[in-house]
Nucleic acid binder design. Structure first.
Length: 933
RNA sequence: GGGCGGUUAGCUCAGCUGGUUAGAGCGCCUGUUUUACACACAGGAGGUCACAGGUUCGAUCCCUGUACUGCCCACCA
C-alpha cells in the first residue's frame, strides 16, 4: 500500500486542502451537484450574516456547525441545495468599533468628513471580512461563495432603498417627533430592542424630595437657591420619590393617584420646584401607584416615557433639560452645562442644604443601557423615522399561527406571538454615518410660510438622487437644491431583507425564481425579534411570501460557569479557531452539534491550560472519536491491500443469506437500523441524538465487535460497505475526516471487487446519504438476538476472568449450556474462544453442572467456568445468592404485575414483553437455584 | 408584575408524544504494549430521575402545587 496512513489523525494535514478542493470543484454550489433526487425539494438557507466588527465567536461556530450539518445532509439526500454566505455591515456596532480604533490613533470622527470616516470604516470592513472568511472556511461551511453578499453591496443597497420606498409609498414609513431611546454616547436614537436592562436592576438610590406647596401664608421663596433658606417659611409640602433628582429641573407637574386619601385635598394646588422656583400643578392620574415611594410622583414629560404620555394627557409643558450628550441645558438654570450624573450629585447636595431631602433609600434601579455602548439610555424627544408594524406584525403572527412557518422548538411560538401581538412602531433611523442613508431628499430650507409651498411636496423618497431631482424640478423649478436626509437605517432593516435581497430581489432573477422562498432559517434564539420576526414581516409585506418555512433556533454558548460570553469579560471569550487548532474542526463541530438539544444553551467546559490554550474534555472526546474512525479505516484499508488480501473465494460474501456469518448478518442489520434511526432523527431536527447514534454504531458495534470478529473471519466487501455507510452517515457531522477517509477507501477499492455504489460519486460531500433501501438486507431480528446472546456469553467469561484476575494471556476452559442457542453458539465458537480467550470450550443444549465452577446465568444460556483451586466457594455462593435474591424480587414484581389489571389493560405487545421477561427471569432463577444446590 | 426553560451518576448532558433492569462522555477503581487505535482495549463501582400531591394497570415522562435556578418581556417613579 503506497498510501500509508499516519497512526493518528492530523486535522491540519487535511482540512485546508479538502476545503479548497470542495470549493474549487464547485461542490458547494447547487450547480455542482451531481446527485439529485427528483423527490427532494430544494433546500435553501441564507446564513445569519456575521457582523463585520472583528472576529467570530463560539456562537458563530455553533451556527456554522448546525447549518452546515443541515446543508450537507440535504445535499447528500439529493435536494438541490444552496447556502448563501455573507456579512452584515452592522451599523452601530461597526461604527463604534472603528471609532474606538480611531480614538486609539488620537482621531475623532467629528473632526473628519463623513466620506473620510466612511473610508476608514470600509477599510475596517475589508479587514474584518478577511478574518471572518478565514474563520468560516476553517469551520468548513459548505456555502456557495459565488453568491456571497454584504448588506451594503450595490445590489443589496438597491434592495434596501426599494424596500424603503415601497413602504414609504404605502404610508407605512413616516417621520415623527416623539420620545425615543437615546444613546448619549453614540449620539443616536435606538429601537426598544436595543435597550437592555439588568434583570435585578443596578444599585442606586431612591431620593425622597419635598416640594413646598403654595399656601395663603407662603407665596414662594424669598431667598436664593443655595442660600440654605430657599424654602424658609413654607408650611406645606408634598414629597416625591425619584431615582433621578436631576430631572426635577424638567418637571412640569407633581401627580398623585386620584384615590389616594393622603393627597386628595391638595390636588389642584401648586408646588414649587426646587432650584428653579417654577410653579407646577399637583395633578391626579391613575398611572400613580399609591403604595410605591411616597405615593406622589414628579412628572418630567421630556425625559421619561410614562411622563411623556402623562404630559400629553394633561397638556403639560415639555421642558428639555438635557441635550444630546445628556448634559444639562440652559433650562437647567444654575446647573447648565453639567453632565447628568454630576448634576445629580450637585442637586442632591443642594436639596439637602435647603432641607428638602427627606430621606434616601438604597434601591435597585432598572437602568436601560445601550446594547452596544453600555451607556445609560436617555428617553429623549427626537425627530425620527418610524415603520408602522401593526399590519405586518399581525401577518407574521398568522404565519406561525396558521402553520406556514414552523418554529423549532415549538415553545418559542409563545414568545413570537407575545411580541408580535403587542408590537410597537419601529424606530428605523439612526444618527450614524455607517449604514444605508435614508433615501429621502428635502427641498432646501422648506418653509411653510412661503405662499404655495405646501402645494408641492417638500420631501422626495426615491431610489436615487437623480430621480428625486427629476421630481423636485417639476415642482420647484430647475434651480431647486435637494439635501438627503442625513440619517441611516437601523442595521436590522437591511438584515430583514436578507433572504430575498441576497437572491436578487427586487429583480426577478433566476435565483429568486429557483430558491425563494428559502427553506430553513437557523439562528440563535436571542435574535428572534431583531432578525427573524423582521424578516418574516418584511418578507410578507414586500414579496408576499413567508421567506422560509422553518425556523430552527439553537441555544446560546455559555462559559463553563454558565455565564454569557460577554464582551465585557474578554478572558472568557473563546476563539473557535483556537479550539480548532488544538482539536480539529470535526471535533469542535461534533461537540457543538451533540452537546445539547434545540433551543437549549450549551455550556462549554473549556478551561485555560498552563500554556494559555483552551482545553475541553468534551471536545477531546470528539477528537478521539475522529481518531478512532481514522484508525479503524486504517485497519480496513490494510485488509484490502493486495498483499494482505484474503482470497475472495475463502470469504463469506453471501450477504443477507441465512447461512452467511452471524457477525455479517448482524452488522448489516445494525446498519439498516441505524440508518433508519438517523434519518428519522435528522428529519425531526434531533441532530444531537442522531450524532450519538452514529457514534455508538461506529465505536461500539463496528469497531469493538464487528472489526474484532473480522479478525477471525474476514468479509472484506461487507467491511468496506459498512465503513462506507458509516462515513456517509457521519459526513454532515464530521466532514473533513470522513471525506479524507472515504477518498482513501475509494481509491484502494478502485478496480477491485470491493466496489460499493456510492463510489460512483466524485466526493463524499456529493455522495448519497445512506437510505434504508440500499441496505436491502433489512433488519433481521434473529441476527440481532443471536449476536446479543453471543455477546452475553463473551462478556460473562470476560467478567469472570477479570473478577478472578486471570492473567490476560492465560486461556480458560468454559462450558456453555445453551438450550436452543447451542447450534448458533457452536457455529460461533471461534469468536468465543478468541474474544474471551477460551481454550476448551464445550457447548451443549444441556450439560451437567461442573463442580468448582463460576456460574453465569444469562437466561436461556448458562456459562460455567471451571476454575479449580481459584474459586472461592463461599464468595461464589454469596454472589449467586445475591443474584438469586435480585431475580426473585424481579419475579415477584413481574408476577404481581401480570396478575393485576395490567394484564387486562395494557397493550398486548407490552404484556407479551412482560411475559417473556418473566419467563427468562424464571429460567435464570432455576439455573441459579440448581447451581446453589 | 407576566411568560418560558432547567433540576436525572462526582461533573457535563441524553432520554424520541407513559411500558424491560433509566443511558452516554468525562472522571473514579481493576487489569492490559491482544498484530487499526494508549486519542486505545477489557472489566467494575456509582442514580429515591429536586420535593409533595394527583391521573393511570403502569409516571423520569402527563396534571397541580412547592423549592431552588437561568432567561425573556413589561412605562412602579
Amino acid at each position: 500500500m503506497n498510501m500509508e496512513l499516519p497512526k493518528a489523525y492530523s486535522p491540519k494535514d487535511v482540512e485546508d486542502r479538502l476545503y479548497d478542493w470542495w470549493d474549487k470543484n464547485g461542490y458547494f454550489t447547487p450547480e455542482g451537484q451531481t446527485f439529485l433526487d427528483p423527490n427532494e425539494k430544494p433546500f435553501v438557507i441564507t446564513i445569519p450574516p456575521p457582523n463585520v466588527t472583528g472576529t467570530l465567536h463560539m456562537g458563530h461556530a455553533l451556527t456554522s456547525a448546525v447549518e452546515d450539518l443541515m446543508t450537507r445532509y440535504h445535499r447528500m439526500k439529493g435536494a438541490r441545495t444552496l447556502w448563501v454566505p455573507g456579512t452584515d455591515h452592522a451599523g452601530i456596532a461597526t461604527q463604534s468599533v472603528v471609532e474606538k480604533k480611531l480614538a486609539k490613533e488620537g482621531k475623532n470622527r467629528r473632526d473628519m468628513s463623513r466620506s473620510d470616516f466612511l473610508e476608514e470604516v470600509w477599510d475596517w470592513k475589508e479587514y474584518s471580512h478577511q478574518i471572518i472568511t478565514k474563520q468560516q472556511k476553517a469551520l468548513g461551511i459548505s456555502v456557495d461563495w459565488n453568491r456571497e453578499a454584504f448588506t451594503m453591496d450595490d445590489k443589496l443597497s438597491h434592495a434596501v432603498r426599494t424596500a424603503f420606498k415601497m413602504l414609504y409609498d404605502k404610508g407605512l414609513i413616516y417621520r415623527d417627533t416623539r420620545m425615543i431611546n437615546w444613546d448619549p454616547v453614540q449620539l443616536t436614537g435606538v429601537s426598544d430592542l436595543e435597550v437592555e436592562t439588568e434583570e435585578e436592576g443596578e444599585p442606586g438610590k431612591l431620593w425622597f424630595v419635598r416640594y413646598p406647596l403654595q399656601t395663603n401664608r407662603w407665596e414662594g421663596p424669598k431667598h436664593v437657591w443655595g442660600s440654605g433658606q430657599w424654602a424658609e417659611g413654607a408650611t406645606q409640602w408634598i414629597t416625591v420619590a425619584t431615582t433621578r433628582p436631576e430631572t426635577i429641573l424638567g418637571d412640569s407637574a407633581v401627580m398623585v393617584n386620584p384615590d389616594d386619601d393622603r393627597y386628595r385635598d391638595i390636588i389642584g394646588c401648586r408646588a414649587i420646584l426646587p432650584a428653579l422656583g417654577r410653579w407646577v400643578p399637583v395633578i391626579s392620574d391613575a398611572a400613580v401607584e399609591s403604595g410605591f415611594g411616597s405615593g406622589a410622583v414628579k412628572v418630567t414629560p421630556a425625559h421619561d416615557f410614562t411622563d411623556y404620555d402623562v404630559g400629553k394627557r394633561h397638556h403639560l409643558a415639555c421642558i428639555e433639560v438635557m441635550d444630546q450628550h445628556a448634559r444639562m441645558t440652559a433650562e437647567a438654570g444654575p446647573y447648565e452645562g453639567l453632565d447628568r450624573f454630576e448634576c445629580r450629585t450637585r442637586m442632591v447636595a443642594d436639596l439637602e442644604k435647603e432641607g428638602l431631602l427627606v430621606k434616601v433609600e438604597d434601591y435597585m434601579v432598572r437602568l436601560g443601557r445601550g446594547q452596544r455602548s453600555g451607556a445609560v439610555i436617555e428617553p429623549r424627544i427626537s425627530l425620527q423615522w418610524f415603520c408602522n408594524m401593526q399590519g405586518m406584525g399581525a401577518a407574521a403572527a398568522a404565519s406561525v399561527r396558521e402553520g406556514r412557518i414552523r418554529i423549532v422548538p415549538e415553545r418559542f411560538d409563545k414568545i413570537w406571538f407575545g411580541w408580535l401581538d403587542n408590537i410597537r412602531d419601529w424606530n428605523i433611523s439612526r444618527q450614524l454615518w455607517w449604514g444605508h442613508q435614508i433615501p429621502v431628499w428635502y427641498v432646501q430650507e422648506p418653509d411653510s410660510r412661503i405662499p404655495g409651498s405646501e402645494q408641492a411636496p417638500k420631501q422626495y423618497c426615491e431610489l436615487t438622487e437623480a430621480e428625486a431631482y427629476a421630481k423636485a424640478i417639476k415642482d420647484w423649478g430647475a434651480d431647486v437644491v435637494l439635501k438627503q436626509d442625513p440619517d441611516v437605517l437601523d442595521t436590522w432593516f437591511s438584515s430583514g431583507l436578507w433572504p430575498f435581497s441576497t437572491l436578487g430581489w427586487p429583480n426577478d432573477t433566476a435565483d429568486m425564481r429557483a430558491f425563494y422562498p428559502t427553506t430553513h432559517l437557523e439562528t440563535g434564539y436571542d435574535i428572534i425579534f431583531f432578525w427573524v420576526a423582521r424578516m418574516v414581516m418584511l418578507g410578507l409585506e414586500l414579496t408576499g411570501k413567508e421567506p422560509f418555512d422553518t425556523v430552527y433556533l439553537h441555544g446560546l454558548i455559555r462559559t463553563a460557569d454558565g455565564k454569557k460570553m460577554s464582551k465585557s469579560r474578554p478572558d472568557k471569550i473563546i476563539d473557535p479557531l483556537e479550539l480548532i487548532d488544538t482539536y480539529g474542526t470535526d471535533a469542535v463541530r461534533f461537540f457543538l452539534v451533540t452537546a445539547g438539544t434545540p433551543g437549549n444553551d450549551i455550556k462549554i467546559d473549556a478551561k485555560k491550560a498552563a500554556d494559555g490554550k483552551w482545553q475541553s474534555e468534551r471536545i477531546e472526546g470528539a477528537r478521539n472519536f475522529a481518531n478512532k474512525l481514522w484508525n479503524v479505516t486504517r485497519f480496513v484499508l490494510g485488509k484490502l491491500s493486495p498483499e494482505s488480501r484474503v482470497p475472495i473465494a475463502s470469504q463469506n460474501t453471501r450477504l443477507g443469506t441465512p447461512d452467511s456469518g452471524l457477525a455479517d448478518r448482524w452488522i448489516a442489520a445494525r446498519s439498516a437500523q441505524v440508518v433508519a434511526d438517523v434519518r428519522r432523527l435528522m428529519n425531526d431536527y434531533q441532530y444531537g441524538e442522531a450524532g450519538k447514534i452514529i457514534y455508538d454504531f461506529i465505536w461500539n458495534d463496528f469497531c469493538d465487535w464487528y472489526v474484532e470478529l473480522s479478525k477471525l473471519s474476514l468479509n472484506a466487501p461487507l467491511l468496506v460497505r459498512t465503513l462506507d455507510t458509516a462515513l456517509r452517515l457521519l459526513h454532515p457531522f464530521m466532514p473533513y475526516v470522513t471525506e479524507e477517509l472515504w477518498q482513501k477507501l475509494k481509491e484502494v477499492a478502485a478496480g477491485s471487487e470491493f466496489q460499493v455504489s456510492s463510489f460512483k460519486s466524485a466526493a463524499l460531500i456529493l455522495a448519497p446519504f445512506p437510505s434504508t433501501e440500499d441496505s436491502a438486507l433489512g433488519t433481521r431480528q434473529s441476527a440481532l438476538d443471536d449476536m446479543a446472546a453471543l455477546q452475553d456469553v463473551i462478556r460473562a467469561i470476560r467478567n469472570a476472568r477479570s473478577e478472578y484476575k486471570v492473567e490476560p494471556n492465560k486461556r480458560v476452559a468454559a462450558l456453555v449450556q445453551a438450550g436452543a442457542r447451542a447450534a448458533m453458539l457452536n457455529d460461533n465458537r471461534a469468536a468465543i474462544e478468541s474474544l474471551a480467550r477460551v481454550d476448551g470450550l464445550t457447548i451443549a443444549e444441556t450439560l451437567p453442572a461442573p463442580p468448582q465452577a463460576m456460574t453465569y446465568a444469562l437466561g436461556e444460556v448458562t456459562v460455567y467456568l471451571p476454575m479449580a483451586g481459584l474459586v472461592d466457594l463461599e464468595a461464589e455462593k454469596k454472589r449467586l445468592a445475591d443474584e438469586l435474591a435480585a431475580i426473585e424480587g424481579q419475579i415477584v414484581k413481574s408476577e404481581a404485575l401480570l396478575a393485576s389489571d395490567f394484564a387486562k389493560r395494557a397493550p398486548a405487545q407490552v404484556i407479551e414483553k412482560e411475559k417473556a421477561k418473566l419467563a427468562e427471569a424464571k429460567a435464570k432463577r432455576d439455573q441459579l437455584k440448581e447451581r446453589l444446590a
